[in-house]
Amino acid sequence: MTILAIDTSNLTLGVALIKDGKVIAEHISHLKKNHSVRAMPAIDELLKECGLEPNDLTQIAVAKGPGSYTGVRIGV
């Protein structure tokens, strides 16, 4: 099982890939906001680094907050 985990609910952007219960890659950005611009390139970079394609993902998990409505919506 390969999971893409996304957290855009707060100021920190977090994206991770989890395979068989272990984190195999992660991207954390402490730059303020701009998650709408940074999230997809971060996901693309992680997939490439791990040699995975979007079709290899079995689940996608998105943090539901606490945080701003817009931030959560960007993750979804």
Rank of each mutant, 00 (worst) to 15 (best):
A5E: 10
G51H: 01
D44W: 08
I6T: 02
V76P: 02
I43Q: 09
C50D: 04
L31W: 06
T12A: 07
V62T: 09
G65D: 11
E53K: 05
L46C: 02
T2V: 15
N10M: 10
S9R: 00
M1P: 13
K32Q: 11
L47D: 03
D20V: 04
K33H: 15
L57I: 08
L46W: 03
V23D: 09
V72L: 12
G75C: 07
A25T: 02
P66L: 03
I74P: 00
R73Y: 07
I43W: 08
I18H: 03
P54I: 12
P66T: 04
D20W: 00
V23C: 08
K19W: 06
N55D: 15
K64M: 09
S29T: 05
M40Q: 15
K32N: 13
L17A: 04
K64I: 09
T12Y: 01
M1C: 07
I43L: 11
G14Y: 01
D44F: 13
N55Q: 14
I28V: 15
T2F: 08
A42E: 12
A63N: 14
T58S: 14
A16L: 07
A5L: 09
D7G: 05
N34P: 05
L11R: 06
V72H: 07
S68F: 07
L46A: 08
K32E: 14
I74V: 15
N34S: 14
L57R: 08
H27F: 06
G65S: 03
G71R: 00
G21K: 03
K22Q: 14
L52F: 09
G51F: 00
R73F: 09
T12F: 01
Y69F: 15
Q59L: 10
H35Y: 03
I3D: 04
T70Q: 09
D7H: 01
G71K: 00
D20E: 10
G75D: 04
I18F: 05
T58F: 04
L17E: 00
G51Q: 05
R38L: 13
G21V: 05
S29P: 08
K19V: 13
E45P: 02
L11Q: 11
L4W: 01
H30V: 06
G21F: 01
T8V: 10
H35Q: 01
G75T: 04
E45T: 12
E49R: 13
A25L: 05
A16Y: 00
C50P: 00
G71I: 02
P66S: 09
K64H: 10
S36I: 11
D56E: 14
Q59C: 08
S29F: 08
V76R: 13
